[in-house]
């Protein structure tokens, strides 16, 4: 009897966790099928009276929304690729190569992990203004690409790669570049997935930096689009919910595809 009770308790709590995590999102997606007066209405109904696709079809025919999805997606892919390249190369150098001022440079790179965004937000804005980067995709992609955190993570991974592998290559006369591209890159798939997905997510979800640096509607990022939509057309809640759903979908799908690596990555980011 107590065992049965314990079982019910455990799975009851498990169900609660699932509901707490997923309910707001499920409600959002379903509310996208509702008429605008129906999203917030008494008495509460989870499902719409009539399932209407018009919110979703209207958005998917809306050029400005599609453009913001496309621009954000392209930017996120570029950003992930750039940060992977920059940070993996740096991480490899710190993990395996011997060079002057290594310790000092390492301390500098590590220190950047602890500088909060808001402390340098304004002066970064000054820099990108002076470089003439405002209202370009570059201002979203380039400034955040180098990351002390990612270098740290990848270096840690590279320190665990057995030295014997490269010693053989070294005997064959391979230099650092060959060793990096032929041995380390192929071994880093798991780590690259974690780092790449993290970058993609950060870019896709960014709001404050785009608001400061992008005023051209052609380059509006998807979060910017949603926030503007919400303040301009607050009454069109069905549409707003459908838009939020479409904006959340890519990252949820990305997460579900790579969930194994990402979850393992979170465990690694924490201490053991």
């Amino acid at each position: 009897m107590t065992r049965l009770l314990g079982w019910i308790l455990r799975y009851g709590i498990a169900a609660l966790f699932v509901v707490a995590a997923v309910f707001p999102l499920a409600w959002m997606a379903v509310a996208g099928f509702k008429a605008k007066t129906e999203v917030v209405a008494t008495p509460f109904q989870f499902f719409p009276e009539v399932w209407r696709w018009d919110n979703y079809t209207q958005l998917l025919a809306d050029e400005s929304f599609l453009r913001s999805l496309g621009v954000t997606f392209a930017g996120a892919v570029l950003f992930a690729a750039l940060s992977l390249t920059v940070n993996a190369l740096g991480a490899y150098a710190f993990a395996r190569l011997d060079f002057a001022f290594k310790r000092i440079l390492w301390v500098v790179v590590i220190t950047t992990m602890f500088i909060p965004g808001i402390a340098i937000m304004l002066t970064s804005f000054v820099v990108v203004t002076q470089l003439g980067m405002l209202d370009t995709l570059a201002v979203l992609v380039i400034p955040g690409a180098a990351s002390g955190m990612q270098v740290f993570f990848l270096r840690q991974y590279y320190l665990g790669v057995p030295v014997a592998l490269e010693e053989a290559a070294q005997l064959d006369g391979a230099g650092p570049w060959r060793i990096f591209t032929r041995i380390f890159v192929p071994l880093s798939k798991g780590a690259f997935v974690v780092v790449g997905a993290t970058s993609f997510l950060a870019f896709w979800n960014a709001y404050v930096w785009p608001v400061l640096t992008i005023t051209d509607p052609e380059l509006f990022q998807v979060q910017q689009y949603l926030a503007t939509f919400r303040s301009d057309r607050a009454s069109e809640m069905g549409l707003l919910m459908a838009g939020s759903t479409l904006a959340a979908l890519p990252v949820i799908v990305l997460f579900l595809i790579f969930q194994r690596q990402i979850i393992a990555g979170v465990r690694i980011t924490g201490l053991k």
Partner: peptide
């Protein structure tokens, strides 16, 4: 190694320098 390391580190250090350390 030093030469290779400098080239490999250059993008990282330049970007961090311009967009984090200088600000």
């Amino acid at each position: 190694e030093t030469k290779a390391a400098l080239i490999m580190l250059a993008p990282l250090l330049i970007l961090l320098g311009i967009f984090v350390i200088w600000p």
